[in-house]
Computed example of a mutant assay.
Amino acid sequence: MIKIIIVDDHAMVRSGLRLLLSGKEDIEVVGEGADGDEGIRLVRELRPDVVLMDLSMPHGKDGLTAASELNSEFPDTAVLILTMHDDDEYLFRAIHAGASGYVLKSAPHEELLAAIRSVSEGNAYLYPTATKRLMNEYMERMRRGESGDLYEALSEREKEVLSLTAKGYANKEIAEQLIISVKTVETHKSNVMEKLGLKSRPELIKYAVKKGLLQFE
């Protein structure tokens, strides 16, 4: 049996999901919660296989915060996000929080059941168009030079110039810190932009943020 907890702030949604799932021989709904705090408490108490979690819950912890905490404390419990938000930002945030799956509330019942069974076996599940979006995002990052391999292709001096430029230092200031000429700084900066496929300073800053290069001493 797949033991499930339903966490959603709408009682009618929880009742509908319980009704749907209770008719399945391999699924047992063992608890319900109205917010992330209740969801975490129920997981600690009941140790389910899957938590069916809404994203937007106005009271207590939201679904993303709860998913992140559950992923840290109970890595063997799969969190399946069930939401109305067909949005890239929420999708990527859910994945970053450690959710095992992401399903829309508008999806057919068969898709939800397939998602539950998939994540209960340790797999990940995304609705079909979300998978395509992730692939597109991955390809775009590769094109823009956001992979570790391209960063490692930079020389140590180029990495220093990249970090200082992203932190807002002017070429002259960078030259003084690194004890090199302004002309050399400009050459390094040009090489960095070319190697990483970046075309502007905003793109460079965005890249540096994602790489964690903006740590000020």
Rank of each mutant, 00 (worst) to 15 (best):
residue 42 L to Q: 04
residue 78 A to K: 12
residue 139 M to E: 07
residue 59 H to T: 09
residue 194 E to K: 10
residue 133 R to C: 00
residue 158 E to R: 06
residue 58 P to A: 06
residue 134 L to Y: 07
residue 5 I to N: 10
residue 13 V to N: 13
residue 151 Y to I: 15
residue 166 A to R: 02
residue 6 I to C: 06
residue 97 A to Q: 09
residue 48 P to W: 01
residue 169 Y to F: 14
residue 176 E to H: 08
residue 68 S to G: 09
residue 174 I to D: 05
residue 113 L to Q: 01
residue 73 E to Y: 06
residue 205 I to K: 15
residue 194 E to S: 09
residue 138 Y to P: 06
residue 93 R to Y: 10
residue 193 M to E: 01
residue 187 T to I: 14
residue 44 R to T: 06
residue 79 V to F: 05
residue 47 R to K: 12
residue 163 S to L: 03
residue 97 A to C: 14
residue 171 N to Y: 12
residue 146 E to R: 09
residue 161 V to W: 15
residue 60 G to E: 01
residue 88 D to P: 11
residue 205 I to P: 06
residue 199 K to M: 15
residue 162 L to A: 02
residue 97 A to T: 04
residue 84 M to V: 11
residue 198 L to I: 08
residue 18 R to T: 11
residue 109 H to D: 08
residue 197 G to Q: 15
residue 70 L to H: 07
residue 177 Q to A: 01
residue 1 M to N: 07
residue 108 P to S: 10
residue 81 I to G: 00
residue 182 V to F: 13
residue 73 E to D: 08
residue 212 G to T: 06
residue 133 R to Y: 02
residue 37 D to F: 03
residue 22 S to Y: 06
residue 96 H to D: 07
residue 120 S to H: 11
residue 144 R to Q: 12
residue 174 I to G: 08
residue 179 I to Y: 02
residue 15 S to G: 14
residue 55 L to S: 04
residue 102 Y to W: 08
residue 26 D to P: 03
residue 81 I to N: 04
residue 26 D to L: 05
residue 153 A to C: 12
residue 133 R to S: 02
residue 106 S to C: 01
residue 95 I to D: 02
residue 88 D to S: 09
residue 135 M to S: 04
residue 206 K to N: 10
residue 54 D to G: 05
residue 139 M to F: 12
residue 43 V to Q: 05
residue 75 P to V: 11
residue 191 N to Y: 03
residue 167 K to L: 10
residue 70 L to P: 03
residue 1 M to P: 08
residue 137 E to H: 07
residue 177 Q to L: 12
residue 190 S to T: 09
residue 114 A to P: 01
residue 29 V to H: 04
residue 132 K to E: 00
residue 182 V to C: 13
residue 167 K to I: 10
residue 56 S to P: 00
residue 209 V to Y: 12
